[in-house]
């Protein structure tokens, strides 16, 4: 339950004016000026543990977990992310699952987990602003699936592998937004295929997942538009969305069905 934005060469007041309408009313806003521009974090007052942290020259946001499949439990303190960044540099953010990102307070540069749940995007009407509510996100290049071939690989079985690690899903939690288009991928309404799990957490678990994983165009759209949109809608509903099918263990396998066997 955190939202953030950065702006290059812009004053904090100007950034606030440009994004104020997007910030949920229940969120407290923190705004800071930096030599390169400014940053803004908005978080729900009821968030525990805290979902953002500044330490040294880093701002870390999100709800990282130690689950390989990016499930809500077991959660990980943000201080752990800061500690790894201190030891290994910003690429250490890619070690973590769940929604997590780090912003350099020296440059305003974003570094996000491979899942891209908290990847920023530029506002179409002002390219100086990077936010978590942009319609299209800039995904980390090292998260792009590589076309590959592995014998006997099947997308249905990959979905089965993920399902084996899911906790028991609770009732559906529909993330419809009457002011926006439905989140449709393939033949499914992805905003309907969201389920409650422990606490405030939601899990995106689309019923046409194997078809989307197998289709490079649809999967790219899921990563850069659909799931981030659901993350943002969940945020406004006071929830945190997890997407196990976007975690490293899946991203690194998705390409296995995309190349023909070598003759």
């Amino acid at each position: 339950m955190v939202w953030a934005a950065t702006a290059d060469a812009m004053s904090p007041a100007e950034l606030l004016c440009r994004v104020a309408s997007q910030i949920p009313a229940s969120h407290d806003v923190t705004l800071r000026h930096e030599p390169w521009g400014c940053w803004l974090v908005a978080a729900s007052r009821s968030s525990t543990p805290a979902q953002w942290l500044t330490s040294g020259r880093w701002l870390v946001i999100g709800s990282p977990t130690t689950s390989v499949y990016g499930l809500p439990e077991p959660s990980l303190p943000l201080a752990e992310v800061v500690e790894r960044i201190g030891r290994f540099g910003p690429r250490a953010v890619t070690l973590f699952s769940g929604p997590v990102a780090a912003i350099s307070l020296d440059s305003g540069e974003w570094h996000c987990a491979l899942n891209g749940l908290l990847a920023p995007g530029r506002l179409p009407d002002d390219r100086r602003i990077s936010t978590l509510s942009a319609p299209v996100r800039d995904l980390p290049p090292e998260a792009r699936p590589v076309d590959d071939h592995s014998p006997a690989f099947s997308y249905q079985r990959l979905v089965g592998e993920i399902a084996e690690h899911l906790p028991e899903l609770g009732p559906r939690f529909e993330l419809h937004d009457p002011t926006a288009h439905d989140v449709v991928l393939g033949d499914r309404l992805w905003s309907s295929d969201v389920f409650e799990v422990a606490g405030d957490a939601l899990v995106s678990w689309p019923s046409n997942l194997s078809d989307v994983l197998a289709d490079p165009v649809l999967f790219d759209r899921a990563r850069s538009r659909s799931v981030p949109e659901l993350v943002w809608r969940a945020e406004r509903a006071g929830r945190t969305l997890y997407a196990p099918f976007l975690e490293r263990v899946v991203l690194d396998q998705v390409g296995f069905g995309r190349r023909r066997a070598a003759s």
Partner: peptide
């Protein structure tokens, strides 16, 4: 030959660990 050899995970680990000279 096979994906289960899981070399992606060690390559990603190396990508993190070369940054600090480990």
């Amino acid at each position: 030959a096979e994906g289960y050899k899981n070399l992606e995970v060690t390559l990603r680990a190396v990508a993190v660990l070369v940054a600090d000279g480990t």
